[in-house]
Amino acid sequence: MSQAAQSANDPVTQWVTFFLDNEKYGIKVMQVQEVLRMTEIAPVPGAPHYVLGIINLRGNVVTVIDSRKRFGLPEQEPDDSTRIVIIEAGDQVVGILVDSVAEVVDLRANEIETAPNVGTDESSKYIQGVSSQGEELLILVDVDKLLSDEEWQEVASL
């Protein structure tokens, strides 16, 4: 019962964790629709640089975003563990390409710390916070802010 009392003022959220360039990231489980194996991504001519292309998801066209590019990480060839995470963000459904998907973790609100901002890079806005998982740090991403409003519109109009 004490657990219930605790959860009232310290709500638990669930996060899907994935890897990008050896760092672990998390996005809210409620925003994740499904996780796909790597499939053929059709490039879209004239698409913005952060868009890898589109995939056919059971008859629906879904835009896939290059998360490595967005995070300023070096590019890497897709391999067996590469996944496309289908998320709902910015009022639409998009896919993000990640190195691998790990697990779902429960985080209590008090386990989430704000990430100090250093430097002038605006792109770091999408970092919602960090959470210590033993020795490593989980970087929590706010997928709605992964792209700016203009960029979301751009994606929607593809």
Partner: peptide, 21 residues
């Protein structure tokens, strides 16, 4: 050190020091 994405080049990342990042 946990590197943070999309940050300035001089920012190496977060270091856990006595429970503080």
């Amino acid at each position: 050190i946990t590197e943070m994405p999309g940050h300035a080049e001089f920012y190496l990342g977060l270091m856990n020091h006595l429970g503080v990042n």
